[in-house]
Design a protein around this nucleic acid. Structure first.
Lengths: 343, 343
DNA sequence: TGTTAGCACTCCTTATGGTCGAGTGCTAAA
DNA sequence: TTTAGCACTCGACCATAAGGAGTGCTAACA
């Protein structure tokens, strides 16, 4: 294990490197307060820390930079709780001055404040409501064979869909179908609706609804709640201000990731509670193995439904970003919950 | 005006530069077929072309590159109709193999094929349906005070909205309101609905609908068809493969533009019919004054409703991109029109 | 008069070598 | 165990030189 002094030195190096982005030399460390030993002693300790894998040396006569293992140790053991600065609080205050009145707007708004505060690329994985339950299903004829179906969940979310009705089916039959579905499926998980129909209701529907064979496609459509995982991003260009991203090829691989929605979803799907930090190789995706991804879940009515996260260089102000993300994710949950209630 | 030989030389230089991205020397031009004069003669002609502003010289002993004026002349007078290559046709064929069943999917799909074919950044400005007309308005109560309104246009588009109903208003009153609105507004331009209400219907509504003062907010909401101009982009990273975009700062200014949706909308709004080419300074936006933007309108049922375009370096294969865009915009119109009919 | 070969000249690109300085590792003394 | 001292390493920076692509000009030629 590391001695107290080694911890202090490691902390000092990372703390300096996070700001300067330059290898940190022994003299610089010795001048930091809390470290009251000479540069030579630091050099010995730094050699030890390097041997243990916490530090790296870009070349023989350069200072040291933290390794990914170093960052991991820093995050796990050396982090101090983040203190909001006056500027941050001001920005936050301005942020709250805006009223948002629907979910998408709230997401975009949250994204931009997060990007502003962290100076990183930020992501919000849109709410996935497949865990909510069916409240009611409606079908409304419009004209000709055009109709609209409306599916309402217990969370107050409304899915709407245009439908093309099959020919030669009287309206009363359709009403009967919808009534039956409502009766049987009310309260069921919306992600399982089609399964339930296939496994439990087909017989019943065939018995009670005329020409059900012509209506099974329509039934599937009615119950299909297309829930593509949508990722909102912001701050793409902020990352370009970081010296480690001034390389076009590196940037390209990250932008490729952003454009391929799936990749992002994979990157952000996030199981644990609270704030999760993934440093470098801890990420599965190759393109971000020299980046860090910090993420947190947000909830609607107590259920985790989405993720909010940032991507930045491994040289990231972890304390700050973790603190901000923790606060904003909780706050976002509150705001969304009220939005879903009120709307 | 330019002599035939000068045109041929200008054409040869641009044609070469589009591929090589390197200044073109007199020897290179003299070797091109169709130009049967010596390098020395070419040099004289190039000096003339430079004096006239069609060519530029990066430095004294370098070859020539086309100026923006040169590109403009090339596009206006020297372009040959684009011949689809076998590879392109293959890609197009694969593209058509996929079935799309709603508009957003069609847009994304079109975007990616366009990016693939042109190797540029591509944009599609989502359909703006404010020129369509109201067909019918519905309101459906869900539970508590939650309801859904449905607004159908003559183009078959459906707007849906969640509503929070005011307290103490009986359902029959709401029905009356909606009936009246339907009766009076059917066939009106949806972009003008609220105006018409304000200017012509307020009195009537007040006379026939009880407690209309409590319902005027709701009325506005009912008729509000939030139609944010949404821009879909693709191929952001393809542009990074072009040597002129290997500069991080340049890239940043373009990405900033993409992130600020409004900028893009401004860039793409497009009045003329057919394919429009804007080279360098012909663009209003500073960030793209060393790029070219090529765009075309697409239609739904004969009305232009949106724009599809590409952004790339001024050194762009204009013939190819114009040809592709012309074809795809027309094709996209056809596909969307059938989608809106069938759906 | 228009075209072409020849040639000096320009200026970018790349390679080379040298200096400077930050920072190290080692040694010896406190 | 800590510290001062010192030789050493290596990248960053700069100046200079060589190489080459391409020009502009001149003079000769059809």
């Amino acid at each position: 294990m590391l001695s107290e002094r080694q911890k202090r030195i490691l902390w000092a190096i990372i703390d300096d490197y996070i700001i300067s982005a330059e290898p940190v030399g022994s003299r610089t460390v010795s001048k930091k307060k809390g470290v009251n030993v000479s540069a030579a002693t630091i050099r010995n300790e730094m050699a030890d820390l390097e041997e243990m894998g916490f530090l790296e040396q870009p070349h023989t006569s350069a200072g040291r930079i933290p390794s990914q293992k170093g960052y991991r140790f820093y995050v796990d053991h050396l982090l101090k709780p983040y203190m909001w600065s006056k500027d941050d609080l001001m920005a936050l205050h301005d942020f709250y001055a805006y009223k948002v009145d629907h979910v998408e707007q709230a997401i975009k708004h949250m994204n931009s404040i997060l990007a502003y505060l962290t100076n990183c690329m930020t992501f919000i994985l849109g709410p996935n409501l497949s865990e909510s339950r069916l409240k009611h299903l409606h079908i409304i004829p419009l004209y000709d064979r055009l109709a609209v179906s409306i599916l309402v969940t217990d969370t107050g979310h409304v899915y709407q869909q245009r439908l093309l009705l099959p020919e030669d089916i009287p309206w009363s039959t359709l009403e009967k179908l919808v009534n039956l579905l409502n009766h049987r499926l009310s309260g069921a998980l919306i992600s399982r609706l089609d399964q339930i129909v296939a496994q439990e209701l087909t017989d019943e529907l065939q018995r009670h609804v005329d020409h059900f064979e012509k209506l099974s496609d329509l039934t599937n459509q009615l119950l299909h709640t297309e829930q593509e995982d949508r990722v909102y991003t912001s701050g793409t260009t902020r990352i370009l201000e970081q010296p480690e991203f001034r390389d076009v090829d590196k940037m390209k691989s990250i932008l490729d990731l952003v454009e391929a929605n799936d990749g992002l979803v994979q990157l952000l799907k996030h199981k644990t509670d609270g704030v999760q930090v993934r440093i470098g190789y801890e990420n599965d995706l190759k393109a971000v193995q020299d980046c860090s991804v910090i993420s947190a879940s947000y909830m609607i009515n107590g259920k985790p439904v989405g993720t909010i996260g940032v991507l930045g260089p491994t040289r990231m102000d972890y304390g700050r970003v973790i603190g901000i993300l923790d606060f904003l994710a909780k706050d976002f949950s509150r705001r969304l919950s009220t939005l879903y209630e009120k709307e």
